[in-house]
Amino acid sequence: MTLAITLIVLTLIKATPIVYAALGGVISERSGVINIGLEGMMVAGAFFAVIVSYATGSPVPGLMAGIAAGAAFGYILALAATRFKVDQIVAGTGINLICTGGAAYGLVLLFNQPGASVQVHALGSDYWILVLLAFALAAALHVVLYRTPWGLRVRACGENPFAVTSAGLNPLLLRTYAVVLSGALAGLGGAFLSIGELNLYSEGMTAGRGFIALAAVIFGRWTPLGATGAALVFGLFEALQFVLEGRIAWLPPSAMSALPYVAALIALAGITGRVRPPKADGVPY
């Protein structure tokens, strides 16, 4: 019984950063921009949250900085994808390199040590608020996307941006808003990792969660609630690693770590063809 409760609690915690990033992925792709840079934006969020918490001695400004950093890189991707018509995959890959390289460079500059930052003030037990907020935001994003005019416009950008223009709106501006929001969400997910679950930034701490989130978007059929469900499944895999560690001797620990990615691959093969991405997803306007 206690094991079941531990598993549920751990699943919620482990799913939280993936939920944030996946919601970011949903809003971005529904507007027609594939955000491969989610991983980098999570890194930026995690890194700047720690830096600002270190500088101010308080985690709340750190959290804000994490969100802002994610949003800033979201804006860079938005600029690249809308104004400069850069290939979105290429731009996202560039952002991932900038963020991981930049964070490593920053660590050495600021803390004079590679690998990890010093310990900073973290949210402590308050990080529960962020867990709950993730699921609340999933519901909120669902309402925004399907029940508000703005949501309809964003979805229209992802299906047929020309129609949006015909209606007298600017699809490039709508895409920019969506991708900035996407970055802010990913940044929040990263900040949750660094000053929520832990109290420092360490290299590789995002561990591909931004990419897992991209898979969650597909399994969730590009809907906020679906992506959240998929993120929970990935969270369950991560939680299982902790719960089962040492209990199953024949299964090497890194095989357990590989499980979410293998599951994502199998599900990707199984689900594609039965789901339809937004029609103009990844297509520059």
Partner: peptide
């Protein structure tokens, strides 16, 4: 996966990076 199921090669190749890293680690640790 792309040819047979239409699965996004972007996601597939990204995921396979992680699978390769963990697989290699398991094999050369054991």
């Amino acid at each position: 996966m792309k040819a047979r199921f239409g699965a996004s090669e972007i996601i597939a190749t990204l995921m396979l990076n992680f699978v390769a890293a963990f697989l290699a680690l398991d094999l050369v640790s054991g």
